[in-house]
Simulated assay, not measured.
Amino acid sequence: MSAASGGQRRSARMVNLPVEHVIEYRDNDQIYHGFDNGRIYQVDRRTGLILGLLDLPN
């Protein structure tokens, strides 16, 4: 995953991961994963800042 620039906060449009990606991208006490516009976002639970993102193939 690449680091998001500027410490952006998560989007209100972000939804749960598609089922086919839940096992590969597991949430834990520090981070959770969200999905928006073909990308998986890694988000810091404490701050809500985006730590990384991954573009999924179409």
Score class of each variant (00 low, 15 high):
1 M>Y: 03
1 M>Q: 03
3 A>I: 13
4 A>K: 09
5 S>T: 11
5 S>D: 11
6 G>D: 05
6 G>W: 03
6 G>M: 06
7 G>D: 07
7 G>E: 08
7 G>P: 00
7 G>H: 08
8 Q>N: 04
8 Q>A: 14
9 R>E: 12
9 R>D: 11
10 R>S: 09
10 R>C: 09
11 S>H: 04
11 S>C: 03
12 A>L: 10
12 A>V: 12
14 M>L: 10
15 V>L: 09
15 V>E: 11
16 N>H: 03
18 P>G: 04
20 E>N: 08
20 E>G: 04
23 I>G: 09
23 I>R: 13
23 I>F: 08
23 I>K: 14
23 I>H: 09
24 E>M: 13
24 E>K: 13
24 E>V: 13
26 R>D: 03
26 R>V: 11
26 R>H: 02
27 D>P: 02
27 D>Q: 06
27 D>Y: 01
28 N>H: 04
28 N>P: 03
28 N>A: 04
30 Q>S: 15
30 Q>M: 14
30 Q>C: 12
31 I>T: 10
33 H>W: 08
33 H>T: 02
34 G>C: 02
34 G>P: 00
34 G>T: 06
34 G>A: 10
35 F>S: 02
35 F>H: 05
36 D>G: 00
36 D>M: 03
37 N>T: 10
38 G>Y: 05
38 G>D: 07
38 G>K: 05
39 R>P: 01
40 I>E: 02
40 I>G: 02
40 I>Y: 01
41 Y>V: 04
41 Y>E: 04
42 Q>G: 06
43 V>E: 02
43 V>Q: 01
44 D>N: 15
44 D>I: 10
44 D>K: 05
48 G>Y: 04
49 L>V: 15
50 I>L: 15
50 I>T: 07
50 I>H: 01
55 D>E: 13
55 D>F: 07
56 L>C: 01
57 P>A: 10
57 P>S: 05
58 N>L: 12
